[in-house]
Amino acid sequence: MLPSAEVAREDRRRWLDPVTEFLAGRYGRRARGRNWSTGEADADGGIVEVWCCSSDSVTTPDATATLAVEALREWRGWLEDLAERFADLTPPGNTPATSTDHWYWERACTRLVTAVADRTEAKSGWYGHCKQVLRWFLAHSGIDKGQAQAIVENAAGGRSGSWITPDVLVADTVSSRFTSGAGRTR
Rank of each mutant, 00 (worst) to 15 (best):
P3F: 03
R30I: 14
R177Q: 08
D172F: 09
F178H: 01
F22D: 08
Y27W: 10
L112T: 04
L89M: 07
L67H: 02
T64K: 03
L169W: 13
D42E: 06
S124N: 12
Y127A: 04
R135E: 15
D167G: 02
L72R: 01
R111F: 12
W163N: 02
R186I: 12
V152M: 06
S57C: 08
S175V: 00
R184K: 08
A171R: 12
A182F: 07
S57P: 06
S180H: 02
A43R: 13
G93H: 00
D81H: 14
P96M: 05
V113Y: 01
G28S: 08
E80A: 08
A97I: 00
D44I: 10
T114F: 00
R119P: 05
T100W: 12
D88A: 10
T64P: 08
V168I: 11
A8T: 05
P61H: 02
V19G: 05
W126E: 08
A5Q: 15
A71C: 04
R34T: 12
T90D: 10
L79E: 10
G181V: 00
A63N: 04
W103L: 15
E49F: 05
W78C: 07
D118E: 06
A108C: 02
W78H: 12
E40F: 14
Q132V: 14
W15N: 09
S175P: 00
V58A: 07
R135T: 11
R184S: 13
T66A: 11
D56W: 10
S160N: 12
P92V: 11
T66Q: 14
S180C: 01
G142F: 09
D167E: 07
Q149F: 15
V69R: 12
E49T: 11
W105F: 07
R32N: 13
G181K: 05
S57W: 02
W136I: 13
E21K: 11
P3N: 07
L82E: 02
V7T: 01
S180Q: 02
K123E: 13
G45E: 03
